[in-house]
Each structure stands twice: as structure tokens, then as C-alpha cells.
Design a binder for these strands. Structure first.
Length: 479
RNA sequence: GGCGCGGUACCCAAGUGGUAAGGGAGAGGUCUGCAAAACCUUUAUGCGUGGGUUCGAUUCCCACCCGCGCCUCCA
């Protein structure tokens, strides 16, 4: 067990991680705004936080993890109005799609999924607390946060407020603010917009207040870890800090972790460049969920990830290598006895794996540890030197690996089918495959290789790959 | 302009003051009836460029070039 170290945006340093309560981690993740399907950039961040929570769980921590769905904002209000449906109805579709996408990518459900619109009273209460402490001021029915009252503002993102003039308008907000950086806690209703009637007036919440209110409701005043995409550090997280710490006077989160963005083919992903992808776009092109998960998790979270289709293909090959080895371990017949060298190799790999992830989730190093073991394991198996006594510990290591990376277990076809992909016509059933393999074996037994190869070709045309092994048995898999 | 990130082989990518992990791809080979899988060899005397510090730098310092992000909604 290596010391877990995480890079804290707050300090700008990589620090040893210890939760407030031993053995238990209070974590909050800024989830998606459900106004559309989530894209691969979103999932880079969500897979990062998933790997973090999975690793912490592997290390024995009990997770108390909250993830929100922002289901009220300008885009949602505008889109729902355009479609003449309520915002709940509008967002429900995308919320369900998001859950399905998470499931498809093996992004674990947090302990709590929370929605902004289910927590209006909590937000109102928090705003009232801030009002009592003079952190707010009203303007034309809206309520703003007075940043001048919170001197530490900027400590997370290191923004420098000098030069921002009071009263300046830096956006097209039509309400008057005392200072340009002041932000809305509560927005007065606009004509025809959805609004809530509350103790602090009619209106709807500003964007930042939901996270403060929900995080503190479920996790208490001080969280252990708060995660999100790098773009959220400012202003979203900075504002969360201002709101929460303004109200409680206590640190809001002890560690802040931010995932870098991804690029697509070296460029910023954007709809206008035509390089904007949702999961469904990729699955429709025939890529597998496991390939995407691998591609998005193999580059450590703090660096930019250049997403390319070539990279997706490479990821598919890498996953295949792991799966082939895993199958070999499962199906192989190993000689009795033990092999101390192999036992040592497994132990070293397991430790290197843990050391990699412990070092601020260095997934590249963790993967390298696995591949080192795969190579050594294959060599030993080829020589018949992989013994029964090591099977259990090897499988344990693979299982632990997959508790974090979650790519070895092969259920891509099932996942795709659930989303309505795959299941291409002409797909062979397992029985049909087995029948053809039997046919081929018979042909090979009488050294009729022409027939045997014809059957193999037929199977290949249906996406079935055969592997003849030395003992005469045949392994097969779907491409 | 302010703050920040990055530039390592064909591609992805880790990394350290002492001479470059791992994966993918290509080439050759072993095994195989042939494949597939696996394994072996091979592909950076060099880690954006130019200086400096040092016995020694890819790793530290300075300058410069290039790409990118945030500063306004954004994972």
C-alpha cells in the first residue's frame, strides 16, 4: 500500500490524501447540465472521477459521493420553452440518457444523484444565511453575491480581481451589479420563464448555488474532495467556495481536483468544427464502449487528452490484449505446484499498479504495471512454467485492476444492444458458431485444410476470430 | 494583457540530475498445415530551439519558437 497523493488545485501541489473521517471519503462531483446528450469531453471528466472513486474503494474507503444534475439553466429554459414542454419533462430525457451512458461506460453510480430542482428550499435557506451575514444585495428582484465581502475570493483559481471596476458590465446581464465579478444567487423571473415562489421572492436559482446547497446537505460543511472539469475552477468552483464558506465560515472542500479537457484530433472539440461527438455517435460508427473507456482513462487526468480515431483503435487493441490474457488465465490448464518467480512478478505488478494510481492517479503507470505482468505471465505460460498456485493471485490482480479500469470484463455487445446498437443482421448465435467450429475441426482432422479454412473464413466474415491452441482446443471470440 | 498547461520515436504516452516505462502500428523471426494468439529482435546517442549551471541535463535556470486552455456559458 502506497501513500495516496492527489494534486490539489487549492494549493497547486500534490499532497498526501487523508479524509477527515478515517476510512470514509466525502466527495462531490459537478455533474452534467442535462440540456443535451453528454459528449466525450464530459466523459473524460466523469471517467476521471470514476477512476478516483473506484480506486479509493479498492483501497478500502467507504465512499460518500454526491453527483448533481443541473436541470435548470438558461439553455434548458430556452429549449424547453421552444418545445413547449415543462423543464422537468425536457430534462428527463437527457437525464435518462446520461444514466444510460454512464452505465455503458461503466461509470459507477455515486451514492447520491441529486437534482437542482429537487433542492430549491435548501438553496433558498443558504441564500438566507448569506443574506443575514450581508453577503448579498438585491437588484431588481434578483439577489447577488457581494464578492467584496469575501476577501479570499480567487484563492482556488488564482484570479486577480484588481482592475475589475465596480459597476462595469462584462457580460450582457441586464441587471445592475455592484462589482463586475458579483454573481447571481437568485434570478428574478423573466417574462414567460419557469420560476419558483419562495421566501426570498419569485425566481430561479443562479447556477452556482445548487452545488453549495446540495453538497453541504448531503456531506456536511466540509467535503474531502470536490471534482470537476478544469473549466469549472473559475468561476463555478470559486463561487461555490465564496457561497459555502461565506455561510459557514468553514473550509468548503479540502481537496479540489480538476480534469484537463480533451482535444479532438489536436483541436478543441466544438460543434462548429464538426468534431463534436456523443457516445452514440461513436457507437454508431462501430466503436465499443470499452475502447472509449480505455482511451479516456489511459491518459492521466491532468494532461490534455488528444482524442483520435486512431487512438480509439489503439485502445481497442490494448483492451483485446488484456482480455486475451485474462481468458488464457481463466481457461488454461496449469501444472500443479508453484513458481516463486511468478509469484514475485505478480506481487511486484500489483504494487506498481497501486503505486501508479496512488501517485495522483497516474493511470499510464498503472497500465504499464499490468502489461509488464501480462508479458511475464504469457512467457511463463508459453513455457509451461505458470503453475496452479499462482492462478488465484493472478486472477485477484486482474480483478483488482478491473475494479478500477473496468475494461476487461467483456460485455460490449450487451451494452450496445441495450442502447439499440449492434445486433447487426446475420450475427451468428453461439450454437451456430460452435457447430461451424466442430465442422472445421472435423475437416482439419482429416487434413482437409481447404474446407477448414473455408469455414474459418465464413466465421471471420461474421466477426468471429478463432484461436487454435496447442492441445487441439479452439478458442473463439467476437471481434 | 493576466493566470495556467503542454511540446519525448510512425501514433498514444510515463518518467528521472547520471544517460529514455508501457501500449498501438510497421518490419524480420520463433511457434503453427496456414492463420490467430503468444514470444523474440527491431524503430529516439536522443526527449521544441538556443544558451547557462553541473563531473554529468531530457530532467534545474534564462531566453525564444510552437500548440492549447481559462479570464464570458462550457467537463
Amino acid at each position: 500500500m502506497n501513500e495516496i497523493r492527489l494534486h490539489n488545485t487549492l494549493s497547486g501541489k500534490t499532497e498526501p490524501f487523508t479524509p477527515q473521517t478515517p476510512g470514509e471519503v466525502k466527495m462531490y462531483t459537478c455533474g452534467p447540465t442535462v440540456y443535451d446528450y453528454a459528449h466525450i469531453g464530459n466523459f473524460r471528466t466523469f471517467i476521471f472521477q470514476d477512476i478516483l472513486r473506484r480506486f479509493l474503494k479498492l483501497r478500502g474507503f467507504k465512499m460518500n459521493h454526491v453527483m448533481n444534475l443541473t436541470d435548470v439553466d438558461d439553455r434548458i429554459i430556452a429549449n424547453a420553452a421552444a418545445q413547449k414542454v415543462g423543464i422537468r419533462e425536457y430534462t428527463e430525457k437527457y437525464a435518462q440518457a446520461f444514466f444510460a451512458d454512464c452505465k455503458t461506460l461503466n461509470v459507477e453510480a455515486p451514492e447520491y444523484w441529486v437534482r437542482a430542482t429537487d433542492h430549491i428550499p435548501e438553496m433558498v435557506q443558504l441564500i438566507e444565511r448569506l443574506q443575514k451575514k450581508s453577503f448579498t444585495y438585491p437588484t431588481e428582484g434578483s439577489i447577488y453575491y457581494r464578492i467584496a465581502k469575501f476577501p479570499q475570493y480567487g484563492k482556488l483559481s488564482k484570479v486577480d480581481l484588481t482592475g475589475i471596476q465596480a459597476g462595469a458590465r462584462v457580460d450582457n446581464d441586464r441587471y445592475e451589479k455592484e462589482s463586475a465579478r458579483d454573481f447571481a444567487l437568485w434570478k428574478a423571473p423573466k417574462e414567460g420563464e419557469h420560476f419558483w415562489e419562495t421566501e426570498i421572492g419569485a425566481g430561479r436559482p443562479g447556477w452556482h448555488i445548487e452545488c453549495s446547497a446540495m453538497a453541504m446537505k448531503y456531506l456536511g460543511d466540509t467535503l474531502d474532495i470536490h471534482t470537476g472539469g478544469i473549466d469549472l475552477a473559475f468561476p463555478h468552483h470559486e463561487n461555490e467556495i465564496a457561497q459555502s464558506e461565506g455561510a459557514t465560515g468553514k473550509p468548503f472542500s479540502r481537496y479540489w481536483l480538476h480534469a484537463e479537457h480533451l482535444l479532438v484530433e489536436g483541436e478543441k472539440m466544438s460543434k462548429s468544427l464538426g468534431n463534436f461527438y456523443t457516445l452514440r455517435d461513436l457507437f454508431a460508427k462501430g466503436y465499443k464502449p470499452s475502447s472509449l473507456r480505455y482511451a479516456l482513462s489511459s491518459v492521466p487526468y491532468r494532461g490534455k487528452l488528444n482524442f483520435t480515431f486512431d487512438g480509439l483503435q489503439q485502445a481497442a487493441s490494448s483492451v483485446e490484449r488484456l482480455r486475451t490474457f485474462s481468458d488464457r488465465l481463466k481457461q488454461g490448464k496449469f501444472p500443479t505446484g508453484s513458481n516463486p518467480a511468478m509469484a514475485a512478478s505478480i506481487a511486484k505488478a500489483a504494487n506498481d499498479f497501486d503505486a501508479g494510481l496512488s501517485d495522483d492517479l497516474n493511470t499510464a503507470v498503472a497500465l504499464a504495471a499490468m502489461y509488464d505482468f501480462v508479458r511475464e505471465g504469457n512467457i511463463a505460460m508459453d513455457k509451461g512454467e505458470f503453475k496452479q498456485d499462482e492462478v488465484a493471485s493472478a486472477q485477484k490482480f486482474l480483478a483488482d485492476f478491473d475494479r478500477v479500469f473496468a475494461v476487461i470484463q467483456d460485455d460490449d455487445a450487451v451494452k450496445l444492444k441495450a442502447l439499440g446498437f449492434g445486433a447487426s443482421e446475420g450475427e451468428l448465435s453461439d450454437e451456430e458458431v460452435e457447430k461451424l467450429i466442430t465442422e472445421r475441426n472435423a475437416a482439419r482432422a482429416r487434413r482437409d485444410f481447404a474446407t477448414g479454412d473455408r469455414v474459418r473464413k465464413e466465421l471471420a466474415d461474421h466477426g468471429i476470430i478463432l484461436e487454435d491452441s496447442r492441445d487441439g482446443s479452439v478458442r473463439w471470440k467476437r471481434k
